[in-house]
Computed example of a mutant assay.
Amino acid sequence: MSLKDRITEDMKAAMRAKDAGRLSTIRMLLAACKQREVDERITLDDAAVVSIVDKLIKQRKDSVAAYAQAGRSDLVDKESAEIRVLEGYLPQRLSADEIAVQVAALVAELGASGPGDMGRVMAAAKAKLGGQAEMALVSAAVKQALGR
């Protein structure tokens, strides 16, 4: 079963359970997937769906920070609940140590040596670790590996 099919089945289950919060989050995710399919005239695979989930989680985290700063705890709770639902569709994430090991292997493989190679290493890391790791952690590991 593809990730998109699983999300659709979860939407049906949320409808049956009358779980309005979960249902609205899943519908928002499916709408984002459908929008991308229509815009790019493609059928999304699991990796593309994971990248959409990642993007939506990042947006929600940014919103949580803004709402917390504004003192809107009601909106913080709503966005945090959406984050928890969306995180259920992500694959198991790599730990910081595992990311560092993967990045070190990439740096050695590419022969990267300094801060000027950051873009090349990040492109390879995004291709290899996309969906498995948060890119902010990958970026920090690349900077550390390149001595930046």
Rank of each mutant, 00 (worst) to 15 (best):
Asp19Tyr: 02
Gln69Val: 08
Val142Thr: 06
Ala145Trp: 07
Lys58Arg: 03
Lys12Met: 11
Glu82Gln: 15
Gln132Phe: 05
Gly111Ala: 02
Ala133Cys: 04
Ala17His: 12
Lys126His: 05
Asp117Met: 10
Leu44Cys: 06
Ala96Pro: 06
Asp39Gln: 13
Val107Pro: 00
Ala105Val: 09
Gln92Trp: 08
Ala133Asp: 04
Ser73Val: 12
Gln132Thr: 04
Leu23Lys: 00
Ala105Asp: 07
Arg22Gln: 07
Lys18Trp: 06
Val103Met: 00
Ala17Leu: 14
Arg148Cys: 13
Leu23His: 04
Glu9Ser: 15
Arg120Gly: 10
Lys12Tyr: 15
Gly114Asp: 15
Leu94Arg: 02
Gln102Arg: 14
Leu137Asn: 12
Glu109Arg: 07
Pro115Tyr: 15
Pro115Cys: 14
Val121Glu: 14
Glu87Cys: 07
Val101Asp: 13
Gln35Ala: 15
Ala32Asn: 02
Ile99Cys: 00
Gln132Asp: 10
Met15Thr: 11
Val142Asp: 10
Ala100Gln: 09
Ala14Lys: 03
Gly130Arg: 02
Met118Ser: 09
Asp77Gly: 11
Asp5Leu: 13
Ser63Ala: 15
Gly147Asp: 08
Glu40Leu: 10
Leu30Tyr: 00
Lys4Gln: 10
Asp77Thr: 12
Gln92Asn: 05
Gly71Asn: 02
Arg84Val: 14
Gly147Tyr: 11
Glu134Ala: 14
Val64Gln: 13
Tyr67Ser: 15
Ile99Asp: 00
Lys143Val: 03
Tyr89Pro: 07
Val107Cys: 09
Ala20Asp: 01
Gly71Arg: 12
Ala124Lys: 09
Leu146Glu: 01
Ala17Arg: 15
Ala112Thr: 02
Asp97Gln: 09
Gly130Leu: 09
Ala141Pro: 02
Leu90Phe: 03
Gly130Gln: 06
Val103Lys: 08
Ala136Leu: 08
Met11Trp: 05
Val38Thr: 12
Gln92Glu: 13
Gly147Ile: 08
Arg120His: 07
Val53Tyr: 10
Ala31Gly: 09
Val142Arg: 01
Gln59Leu: 06
Met11Ile: 04
Val50Leu: 01
Ala104Asn: 03
Ser73Lys: 14
Glu98His: 08
Ala105Cys: 04
Ala105Met: 08
Met135Ser: 07
Arg16Met: 12
Ala145Asp: 03
Gln69Cys: 10
Leu110Pro: 03
Met28Leu: 05
Ala145Asn: 04
Ile7Asp: 11
Asp74Phe: 08
Asp10Ala: 15
Ala133His: 01
Leu23Thr: 01
Gly116Arg: 02
Met118Tyr: 12
Ser51Tyr: 02
Asp74Val: 04
Gln92Gly: 07
Ala123Ile: 00
Val121Ile: 00
Asp19Phe: 02
Glu79Pro: 00
Val49Phe: 01
Lys58Pro: 05
Gly119Ser: 13
Leu44Pro: 00
Val76Ser: 09
Ala81Gly: 10
Met28Ser: 11
Lys78Ala: 12
Ile26Met: 12
Lys128Arg: 14
Lys12Arg: 06
Ala104Ile: 05
Ser2Lys: 10
Gln35Phe: 07
Ala108Asn: 06
